[in-house]
Amino acid sequence: MGKVCFVTTGATAPFTSLIESVLDPSSVDALLEAGFTDLLIQYGTAKETFDQHANVARERLRQKSENATLSIEGMAFNPDGLRDQFVSVQKSEGVVISHAGSGTILEALRYHISLIVVPNKQLLDNHQEELADAMERSRYLLKGDVTNLGPTILKSEGFRQEMNQFPPITSGKHRETKSFAAIMDDTLGILE
């Protein structure tokens, strides 16, 4: 199996600008440069956007060169979750590019994969941007921007080696972290 880039746009609101951004020539070239062979996009309800931009990108790849092999596929929504997609990224040491919803972040990071999250700036009163910044500061993931995804894709290659483990084993500056289970025991006065 080749190297997989999986893109997920979230189930609730269509995030068409992420689909457009990933299929933009600059992103596709970055993926090729980093040695990716498979681009799988979960487009949710935005099938038209995907079809339109995927066709343009495929056409461009065909014209570009003979050894530029990046297969572009799409999927709507998987009711059973994204486990299979995350596993294929994990095995191929690929990358996941995701909207910045906390649920997807928490799930994807359990697979210890390189993750780029892209906040949806069109969503108002949403804490995606804040969360993405905080997570990037803690070196759990990279934050990407819909207007310029290429450099972040290239950066994600080296990031796999230097990213911090999530959930953290220790965190905080001067102290050991406590697990939720330990806090429960503590509250009831159960000693280890």
Binding site: P167, P168, G172, T177, K178, I183
Partner: peptide, 21 residues
């Protein structure tokens, strides 16, 4: 319990921060 350092001590000084839980 809060999960980010910036919120430690919020809620009238009561919020505890032990890292991401």
């Amino acid at each position: 319990l809060v999960q980010w350092e910036g919120l430690e001590g919020s809620g009238g000084g009561r919020a505890e921060w032990w890292g991401v839980l």
